[in-house]
Amino acid sequence: MALLQEVTSTFLRRFKAPPASLHRKWASHCRHASTGAVAQETDELEQSSFLQGEGPAQQAIERFDPAGVAKRRNRRLPPSRYQFRSPRYYRGPLHPHQPPRPSEPSSREFAPGPFSLPRLEQTYHDTLASDYMVLAYAHLPPGQTAFKKGERLRRWEGDSPYFKNRPLRGPRGGDTLRLLRKPVTFRNVPQLQRVTVHTMSSDAINSGAALHVSGMVLQAITNVRAEAHEVKKSVAGFGVRAGMYLSLTCELKGEDMYHFLSKLVDVVMPKMKDWPGVKGSSGDFSGNIALGLKAEEVALFPEMEVNYDMCVRYYLSPTFRIWLLANS
């Protein structure tokens, strides 16, 4: 009997209300995204003694002088103690000497950056992204299902025996299939992914210097090392043989991409003489646009304006083809 009572009491205890409201506890733990701006920068970080403390004492700050200490030291430190060198080769996961992660400055693969927060990127996140969201929003009240499109390729309808196992018919009104579109939500708001800048120099058929100058110009403007591409097919009329290096591309992403695009839009385009604008029919109407710049327009980039004599001394500045690619 006593055992039974004990079981009952434990069973009933489960149904007792918790001492404090669960919701309040939960709410106190998570800060809602829409609450006001944080008063201090460190409020968003997790609490630790590093943030709580007052920092080093004023005396310690004044005394701290690593360069002076190193200068005053009259004996040499053993190089193995303070100079870490990443192994040149990766010798497998079981080797005692492992290379550091690429994000560490001591790694051989380390590439510094980013160096700034581009203005265009900020504009995208603060202004454009939310506008895209509003524009692309499709309202589906509860209970309503989204409109389902028919099959992209049509079946062969009819009694003909030749219709059996025949490949499906193309869409009405044209051979090309329309691009597929995903509904835009807050997770996939259209955003610029990368920009490709391409230049082809026909002068490089005769002299290798033209390609080097084009590469320097591209690199100076885009801040990305240009990649040379070889010709795939020979064209006897132009004197082009397969395997020649005539064209260069730079693929820009992230910070470089935003800086290049702001230079193009804010500096170069307003300066162009008799410019008809980017063609309205350019691009695939799905977020990707291509445009071209003539040699005299490339010369309007601020990096080129400063050093224009240098480039002209070697060769005329190259023409650009630019692709702007977005995920939409």
Binding site: P105, F110, A111, P112, G113, P114, F115, S116, L117
Partner: peptide, 11 residues
């Protein structure tokens, strides 16, 4: 950003 710029100068 300053630290990254200085690292870039070194590398």
């Amino acid at each position: 950003y300053l630290y990254q710029k200085r690292l870039n100068e070194r590398l």
